[in-house]
Write a protein that binds this DNA or RNA. Structure first.
Lengths: 210, 210
DNA sequence: AGAAAGAATGAATAGTGATTCACTGCTTAT
DNA sequence: ATAAGCAGTGAATCACTATTCATTCTTTCT
């Protein structure tokens, strides 16, 4: 035997892979999945086109990984908000606000994750992550029902409705055709769009306005 | 001059166009937009491939028309339900139910209209139609607020949330990967899925459960 | 009939960009 | 130093259909 993969090599490969991932992320954040060309990604990452395929089965697989990374970040933020203190209704409200505000702050990526037409493998990820959000919400709703701050209801169904209501409300404002980077300094609970989404959602959950 | 378009010809062309439209509709209802090939459509309609292009600019344009036709049908049904009698809340509930039940009855087409990844021109139609639904709902919510059966709220925002909540709730059940044509005989207000969607939506609107 | 104009045809083309693969050049171990 | 084997390369290939257009067929009118 003459060549055996060594730690140094493993690391070098990992670095190349990370560069590819980062550059793809950047491309998607700039123009969405559809316009992210493999050749451009390779160029940015400083590798040859073929090298991409030493790290990923296909463009679709690469995209699926980017999708996972980007969405997991958001899911974690939502989970974090749901794990904070206060009663379940308050925590849910905080989580919903978190979600909406973060999306409005990074509109192109948010649009790609929520609404951009994507290939089947990526769409699969999207479905899975929507379910992930719904699961988090569902758990919180269950807790709320137990605590008594949320009336008894089909927690699974309500959570799905929450996901749909936020997503739909954001699609318009995020749509690349009409996004003017109107992100004001730091949103402190006073974006009227976010407020009225939350208002509907909380009433749907609790039956109590505002 | 020797040839002048005559009524007979006009009619014959209209028939061909209708055949093309019908066959495209059928293809989409069977396998969605993505798998509908121009050649197959032409074959079914009994015309040559090129003939399609005498009637439509492009495949995308043809699809956009099919989308419009199919969705307008649904929008009309919703409008109809909203124009029936009863107070605004009752009419809204009927409309939501109508929408959900019809979707579940024709799942492949409903999925294509609601969630299938489609080309830009068709996606534009989709956005437009989502707005059309929202507009109908918005008007009814306004009426409800005036009537007093719905509390004061941002009608536009609530209508968007309604559209999102229903659409999201249906995406899973309609998804072609898991649709078993489980459509029972005739749904008479007792599909539990539909009921719990409506329950959340009506509470979101009125603050009143059930 | 015959000529003019349009409609229909469908095999050939074109455009696109992902993917391949034969080759070059590094790394490793002896 | 050398052999063995893996990593990297990127121009060429491939796959896939929508779309075209030179040609043929129909219709209309004189």
């Amino acid at each position: 035997m003459a060549y055996r993969e060594t730690e140094k090599m493993r690391q070098r490969k990992a670095e190349a892979r990370k560069r590819i991932v980062d550059c793809t992320y950047q491309c998607v954040a700039e123009g969405g999945f559809r316009s992210a060309r493999v050749t451009r990604i390779a160029g940015l990452a400083g590798v040859a086109t073929g090298t991409i395929y030493r790290h990923f089965e296909s463009r679709e697989d690469l995209f699926a990984e980017i999708f996972r990374l980007a969405t997991q970040r958001e899911v974690d933020k939502v989970a974090e908000a749901l794990a904070s203190d206060g009663n379940a209704a308050e925590r849910l409200e905080r989580a919903l606000r978190q979600f909406a505000e973060r999306a409005l702050k990074g509109p192109q990526m948010a649009w790609s994750l929520i609404a951009e037409p994507v290939d089947p493998k990526v769409e699969e990820e999207r479905l899975a992550y929507r379910k992930a959000y719904a699961n988090l919400f569902e758990k919180a709703i269950r807790e709320g029902i137990e605590e008594g701050c949320i009336p008894d209801q089909d927690a699974r169904q309500s959570s799905t409705c929450l996901v749909g209501a936020i997503a739909e409300s954001l699609v318009g404002p995020l749509s690349p055709t009409q996004t003017s980077q109107a992100t004001s300094t730091t949103e402190d609970n006073n974006d009227p769009l976010v407020n009225s989404i939350i208002c509907f959602c909380m009433q749907g959950l609790t039956g109590t306005r505002r």
